[in-house]
Amino acid sequence: MALPAILTNAKPAAATWRALGLLAILLIVLFVFSGRVSMVQVMDNARQAAPLGLIALGQALILLMGRLDLSVGATAGLANVVLAASFAGNMDNMATALAITVFFGLLVGLANGILVVVLRIPAFLATLATSLVIAGAILVYTGGSPGGSIPAGFRVITEGWLFGILPWSVVIWTACSLILLVFVHYSLKGRKMLLSGANARAAQRNGIAADRMVIFSFVLASFMATLGGILLSSITGMASIGIADTYTVDSIAAAVIGGALFSGGVFLPAGVAAGSLILFFLQSLLYVLSLPPAARFVLQGSIIVIALALSNFKKDR
């Protein structure tokens, strides 16, 4: 009650605490089995989790609107191919390369938004269709062997560390999380998104342009997927086909572990971050336990079940 209004508004939800708790448990398990978990190791995992973290943030925005975006993986892959091709390994091309990449990303988001709002196609079908179109277009354009590369100078964004303790990609990820947190929970437009995400009909009746909010969320999600694709490109340094395909499902998993609901109206960036990190530390755990990589899916599925079971358990009480 004594909390100032500005804090009440950003008070972490129970779901955020649950996700952070799961993450903590995972780190403890990792520590017990490997005997050592250093800060550098944690940060290095976070560095590699950043592309997923950004893509999952976009997915969380779509889930906030009560929809699903099955094209985020393809959009990140598109960013990878376009960025490498337009960079062509030359640092001088940076501005154009980034501009072209972001342009394509925004285009995908706009297409998704229009399919969903104007043509009234259910979001998961519309975005599934766009993802197929993107994958096909990439194959046609590249003939199956995409060219170009990311110059070493640019790859600092994922390979470099700020003061040697904080990877730049983690800085970017944190900044994006904070910006979106402030946008959704502290701006008028964000508030309108929350209201239309939780109940589009009621929002519309109260004068909110709920449809426009949906289009906007798809554009924003594609932008985040493009950012994720750019970081991913920086990590690999080159273009490859289908590099981000698994990110579609992973982004949904990360957002849901982080407390997002399919029914909409929830946006918890800290939870999404925790969800993304959980998926990455799971992989580390597999190495430590020397389990086959395929076991990752089993563990991932189990974590989703645990996260959702915990939230339902709380509700029933």
Partner: peptide, 16 residues
């Protein structure tokens, strides 16, 4: 269905 976002707090529903 037409008036409230049931899952959101009273504050958000009331203050638009």
């Amino acid at each position: 269905h037409d008036g409230l976002a049931l899952s959101l707090p009273i504050r958000l529903n009331m203050s638009l």
